[in-house]
Design a protein around this nucleic acid. Structure first.
Lengths: 111, 111
DNA sequence: TTCAATAGTTCGGAATATCAGAACTATTGA
DNA sequence: TCAATAGTTCTGATATTCCGAACTATTGAA
């Protein structure tokens, strides 16, 4: 288990962000973390959009979000607390995350 | 050569858009089409960001953008004219494309 | 201290997507 | 009719993604 890799702000790329959020499950997880108010455990998303996500898949989704720079993960005892790096990303790509989150919510509402 | 498939507005998904634009080359093409003022031929992007894109790859990129609903392609004589479906998408996901385009430009400027 | 339980991670193989060269199709102008 | 131009499709190599199984790390008992 290698230590968690979080890219520095200047290493976060637009392509990385878009790729990470292009997956419906990951987008839902990210919005869930954002909307949670506080840092969220991975297991909180064992079911997403009424679909069960296998543990290994879930772990890879979190890794993808982490490596894209979208979330920060810190071990807290036996679990992992994940929070969104919104403020940082806002300085680099102003308005990007709010627009994507709004689109996620708009689509969820439409469905 | 089957007829060109353009999704209806209601069939355009956020995931599709993000996936299409998560590729640097495709994002550059899309921004180029947008910034061109008029519809652009595919061949106009034979080199993108100082890199040569093989014809077949270029064709697949245009197909990806088309199937994501980002562009509309119409044959005009021997060539293909591509235009962005911005206005339509704006009604479905307000603010999304402007934010992504701004991010593409911001990142291009930073590099 | 040892053990079991919990939370995530990594490994491995099958399914899937992407890239680019080669061959193909469609349109136009000699 | 033919050649030239602009894209598309086919194909095989390469790279990703998914998920079950095995693994690691932390904690709270017994």
């Amino acid at each position: 288990m290698r230590p968690l890799a979080h890219p520095a702000l200047e290493d976060i790329t637009l392509a990385g962000i878009l790729h990470a959020l292009a997956d419906e499950t990951r987008a839902a997880i990210f919005v869930g973390i954002l909307g949670g108010g506080c840092a969220q455990r991975c297991a909180a998303f064992a079911t997403v959009s009424e679909r069960t996500v296998p543990k290994s898949t879930l772990s890879q989704h979190f890794r993808a979000l982490r490596e894209a720079g979208l979330i920060r993960s810190e071990r807290q005892g036996v679990e992992m607390l994940n929070s969104a790096r919104c403020a940082e990303i806002e300085t680099r790509f102003p308005g990007l995350l709010p627009a994507i989150v709004a689109a996620v919510l708009a689509q969820a509402k439409a469905a």
